[in-house]
């Protein structure tokens, strides 16, 4: 198999790689905020439960969580394994990344000085207005570097979908590598991930720059 055919075949999986990437961000970024707010709940029962869930999600491999989401229903209830593997992949990824984002959000929210809340209170802002207008915009700026880190990691983590044979770029590459007894597909995959992250880095850099108008 020529290098070009390899690249073309693997490119066919890039759409699915992108699907995992964008859908995971789409769901995990807001879900992370909900988890963060529950984690910071004054209700200690709620906050301890959420805290425990976060430690499990962060303390066990994403690969294991993916296997659990994909095949768990079959072993537990004899349910059919999803035909479209994209669904369990995105569910597992979104939940896992939400846990990480939640901790990033929490750190950001807790870093906002108390004086900001006090000024807002005296000026008559409601709690929701204070959060949406005063706290959240400042949190977004503060957490951008950590979020960029997670997004870069997510690009590479999409390869974990090969464990459930979802036909994304890396899975196809691994199949070619097996059938052709060649290492070249892995090098191709490496280049793909690097280029992907090159773009991610540029985009995130631009967003950070746009938030640079204040200290």
């Amino acid at each position: 198999m020529s290098l070009l055919t390899m690249i073309l075949k693997m490119s066919e999986g890039l759409g699915k790689t992108c699907a995992i990437f964008f859908l995971t961000l789409l769901f995990s970024l807001p879900l992370g905020m909900i988890v963060a707010l529950l984690r910071m709940s004054k209700n200690t029962v709620v906050s301890s439960i959420v805290r425990f869930i976060i430690t499990v999600l962060r303390g066990t491999p994403l690969m294991l969580q993916l296997l659990a989401v994909t095949y768990g229903p079959y072993y537990l209830f004899g349910a059919n394994v999803a035909r479209n593997k994209l669904i369990p992949v995105v569910v597992a990824f979104a939940i896992n990344y939400a846990a990480y984002f939640a901790e990033i959000y929490r750190g950001g929210i807790e870093s906002i000085p108390k004086g900001q809340y006090e000024a807002a209170s005296v000026l008559g802002y409601s709690r929701l207005q204070t959060f949406m207008r005063i706290v959240l915009p400042q949190v977004v700026k503060r957490i951008m570097p950590s979020v960029t880190n997670e997004v870069v990691t997510l690009v590479k983590d999409t390869s974990i979908a090969f464990t459930v044979s979802y036909q994304e770029m890396f899975t196809i590459g691994k199949q070619i590598a097996n059938s052709q007894t060649s290492f070249t597909p892995f090098i191709v995959a490496g280049v793909f991930y690097y280029l992907f992250n090159f773009i991610v880095d540029r985009v995130m850099g631009r967003i950070e720059k746009r938030l640079d108008y204040y200290k």
Binding site: G115, E118, A119, V122, I134, Q138, K141, Y214, K215
Partner: peptide, 15 residues
């Protein structure tokens, strides 16, 4: 609505 407050650390909204 009756009172205003000026703080030691100003507490302006930086953004």
């Amino acid at each position: 609505r009756l009172f205003g407050m000026v703080f030691q650390n100003f507490n302006l909204f930086p953004h």
